[in-house]
Design a protein around this nucleic acid. Sequence first.
DNA 1: AGACCCAGTTACCCACAGGTAAGTCATACC
DNA 2: GGTATGACTTACCTGTGGGTAACTGGGTCT
Lengths: 122, 122
Amino acid sequence: MATIKEKGQINEATCEQERLAINDTLELLGGKWRLRIMRYLGSREQEHNTFKKMQREIGNISAKVLANELADLEQNMLITRTVMDSRPVTVRYAISTYGKTVLPLTENIAQWGLDHRKMIRS
Amino acid sequence: MATIKEKGQINEATCEQERLAINDTLELLGGKWRLRIMRYLGSREQEHNTFKKMQREIGNISAKVLANELADLEQNMLITRTVMDSRPVTVRYAISTYGKTVLPLTENIAQWGLDHRKMIRS
DNA sequence: AGACCCAGTTACCCACAGGTAAGTCATACC
DNA sequence: GGTATGACTTACCTGTGGGTAACTGGGTCT
């Protein structure tokens, strides 16, 4: 939260901190696929989500892009990657405990979008 | 919120609706400048925010881009544009009542970003 | 041996968000 | 008349997010 000083001015340092934080978040979760992947994994925790399965079930994402996004999300601890010893080898992706903290955010974003649609139509 | 059916499956229609809503939100508020502009105007309601003032005080935004972003935000009712009869003519931009509904969202995003920084460092 | 499956890479391409620099239009001051 | 200021345009350029297609590498099935 922005801390407000007595005279109603915004604390500049905090403000700058928040700006950077917003940039961080958008960099990590912005783009066409990230949130979608997080929501996908968030809603299928109990399933065995392999690379191919995700590619099939998430819209039209190419292998290249999916691999990229998954690597990035993994590096940021939002998802986990487990190589299973099945034949042929499959890889299981799952949302991490930490990754679940973004889900409320996506709900807020979705809710605002829904409200906005109604708003615009009237 | 995603509605969960008895067997723990996700309601597909609702899910799709939310996906679209998220796309809407990101389209409208994503990008490099939008949230920054909203927060700027949100924290300076009582001030007279002209085009030049904003250009000076918001980072290094070019006239072209600023004009673009402002037009878009205005079209979506998030901000208001008022031509003042001063000399030379100035234009006053302000956040709209509706526009203020995005501020909690930015706080959430900022908060998550801040937490994430701490998280990553440890 | 040949065909198929998974989990990716690699190389190439393109549209577009966003940046730079200069120009326009109206008014006002010196 | 010349210069300045606010609020934009206009023309042009570039980086990169994301798309396509084909390929690698390891394993299995017949």
